[in-house]
Design a protein around this nucleic acid. Structure first.
Length: 482
RNA sequence: GGCGCUAUCGUCUAGUGGCCUAGGACACAGCCCUCUCAAGGCUGGCACACGGGUUCGAAUCCCGUUAGCGCUACCA
């Protein structure tokens, strides 16, 4: 049917931000284009002037780029093609495949209400299609407003979906859809078909929520005499409660996850695995690997629940694997947002190395760097407080022992190995377990019972700051730490 | 309500009639490592929605039931 390379499109509507579901649809299009050597076109569907904004368009473009998804053509704006949409509609009218409908919104509403069995059973009764030609031309010359309705064929309309397999609808059950409003602006289904034909789109990969639009669009393709593309409908993304992902589930926009400290590589990888798998057990994959393994039939038919825990796990994997130098600008930006002063960027890597294998998000990572950089960021968590309370007087005592062991070390000896040697010797001399000497230090320095090995922690925090923190903690009444 | 789509561990999934005593990952529990945590290693618990068929044989094919989701505009 199509002898040339595939032409795909991603067609978001700038009536909101880039949703994770939309991002995944874009990703699947991108992967398919990369896999097949096809062309991906970005089209902004802004025909709903009332709800579309320039700002949303920008956010969507930035979101796609952030995820590493680029496009080969566009962005093209649907709103710029209204003349062609109107021309297509007029042609359908001339060929008697569509008709003028003079029913007003109010009349339509009344028709719905008076439908036997309720508005649920309403279907337009084609009363305007039965108007005598003389009456129609009279109304037109009178300037009576009208929409253009497409006459839906009553045949079966079916297609072989690239993801779901065969799907069919009965045309007789479909309504005659409006394709041009009374102000002559196009309605979605006409604009989409008109654009996809003009752009010579061969594969329409979009969300499951468009399945019921597809028979209407196929009918339009046929009426317009255009070849019908391959359709593939990717399942929805649901919230943890199994309902369609929406605002009340918290973060749903791609930008939300960016702000939460998720890496674009991790987000992209996670999204790809939501409803798709490479056919083997690989999980962490580069875009190139994903594209090589990609196929439409491998996409799941059922909706997937968005599991943020696994996203964070994957993000942690990416953070651990990421070169520290690549992390520096991200952490620096976050520290600046937190109003933490860190001096030259070259000073950051040791702090990042100290904590990056333990962090799941950039936010966590930055917070832990901040704690090591500046004692004002130390906050005592529940376990830290519990340890202090449990040890009571032993806490300060243990810290004073540590101070005695550490003070003799000069700046040049303030590295992990000598620190560990000094503390080990002290623990042996006092006949206490090494851990009993170290854990209070950890808590005094970070407020937490979790960190890198204590000797490394001391080395990273530095001699003067470490000693200051230990001194302060050892002399403070342990029942109310800072 | 109508139409459509879907149905394997809590979650993401492998499975396309025998290789399934159903595999992997996240999460969970335990053990190892160990100054804590993470990472890593090992172990464990956890699923074919239900009912009928078809077949020598069904998670896999068919039908029904149930459940979930989507659509049902002069929105996209």
């Amino acid at each position: 049917m199509f002898t040339t390379a595939p032409r795909l499109r991603f067609a978001p509507s700038p009536t909101g931000f880039l949703h994770v579901g939309g991002a995944r649809t874009a990703l699947f299009n991108w992967l398919f284009a990369r896999k097949t050597g096809g062309t991906l076109v970005l089209r902004i569907e802004d025909t709903d002037a009332a709800r579309s904004t320039e700002e949303n368009t920008q956010v969507i473009l930035e979101g796609l780029l952030w995820l590493g998804l680029d496009w080969d053509e566009g962005p093209v704006f649907q709103g710029a093609e209204i003349a062609r949409h109107q021309h297509n509609a007029d042609r359908l009218l001339d060929e008697a495949r569509a008709y003028r409908c003079f029913c007003t919104k109010e009349e339509l509403e009344a028709q719905r209400k008076s439908t036997p069995g309720g508005a649920d059973h309403y279907k337009y009764d084609r009363r305007c299609d039965r108007l005598p030609p003389a009456e129609i031309s009279a109304r037109v010359s009178r300037g009576m407003p009208c929409v253009i309705r497409f006459r839906m064929p009553d045949t079966e309309i079916s297609w072989d979906d690239a993801i779901h397999g065969p799907i069919s609808f009965q045309g007789a059950e479909l309504d005659d859809l409006v394709i041009l409003r009374s102000d002559r602006t196009p309605i979605y289904n006409l604009a989409v078909v008109s654009d996809d034909i003009a752009m010579r789109i061969t594969h329409v990969i979009r969300g499951d929520d468009h399945i019921s639009n597809t028979p209407k669009q196929i009918a339009l393709y046929r009426a317009l005499g255009a070849p019908i593309p391959i359709f593939g409908h990717v399942p929805m993304i649901l919230g943890a409660d199994g309902k369609k992902l929406s605002k009340r589930h918290g973060a749903t926009a791609v930008g939300d996850y960016q702000n939460l400290g998720i890496l674009p590589d991790a987000m992209r990888n996670f999204l790809a695995l939501l409803g798709w798998n490479p056919g083997d057990d690989r999980e962490i994959m580069t875009p190139t690997e994903m594209a090589a393994a990609f196929s439409l039939p491998a996409i799941q038919k059922k909706p997937a629940i968005f599991d943020t825990t696994k996203l964070e796990w994957m993000n942690g994997q990416y953070i651990s694997a990421m070169p520290t130098n690549d992390l520096v600008p991200l952490i620096a930006r976050q520290l600046t947002r937190m109003d933490v002063h860190f001096g030259p960027l070259e000073l950051l890597p040791p702090y990042i190395d100290a904590v990056k294998s333990r962090a799941r998000t950039i936010l966590q990572l930055a917070e832990r760097v901040a704690v090591r950089l500046d004692s004002r960021w130390v906050t005592f968590d529940d376990k830290g407080r519990a340890l202090i309370e449990k040890m009571a007087d032993g806490y300060g005592k243990s810290l004073r022992a540590a101070l005695e062991a550490l003070r003799p070390l000069g700046d040049e000896q303030w590295t992990a190995a000598p620190i560990l040697a000094a503390l080990t010797a002290r623990a042996e001399a006092d006949a206490v377990k090494l851990g009993d000497l170290l854990q209070p230090i950890r808590v005094a320095l970070t407020g937490s019972t979790v960190s890198e090995p204590v000797n490394e922690l001391l080395a990273v925090v530095g001699r003067s700051s470490s000693l200051a923190r230990l001194t302060a903690a050892s002399s403070t009444n342990p029942s109310f730490p800072a």
